[in-house]
């Protein structure tokens, strides 16, 4: 599968990263090299191998479903680049 300019542009849109038109070609070449390199994994037959789900052998813990934190709106908003009336502010989404 060739990793061309159009593919990189599509991936960049999915990842919400603006990539200048002039950099797409170079990125495509680099990514194709990296993807080509990781494809050596195809040498290994893994038909009967389960994918790893957890790196250490532990069960995820359970906890009671109750609120244990909160009531700190101002702290949550403190680093926001833009805020209004106790909310995060973003460009208008609905016309």
């Amino acid at each position: 599968m060739p990793l061309d300019k159009a593919t990189v542009a599509r991936i960049a849109t999915l990842a919400r990263i603006r990539v200048p038109e002039g950099e797409l070609e170079g990125l495509a070449a680099e990514m194709e090299k990296i993807i080509g390199w990781v494809e050596q994994l195809d040498e290994v037959n893994t038909d009967e191998v389960p994918p790893m789900a957890s790196v250490v052998d532990v069960d995820l813990p359970w906890r009671a479903d109750k609120v244990s934190d909160g009531d700190c709106r101002d702290k949550v908003l403190a680093n926001a680049p833009d805020k209004a009336e106790g909310f995060f502010a973003v460009p208008k989404v609905i016309e």
């Binding site: 960049a12 990842a15 990514m31 994994l41 191998v49 389960p50």
Partner: peptide
């Protein structure tokens, strides 16, 4: 940027099994 794009690519529709799932099997 390069790593986010690679990550997005290997997780994207149609490639997940070929890359991400394969890698998780190698990890086993």
């Amino acid at each position: 940027t390069r790593r986010i794009l690679i990550g997005t690519y290997v997780l994207s529709a149609g490639y997940y099994d070929a890359y991400y799932l394969k890698a998780q099997k190698l990890r086993t």
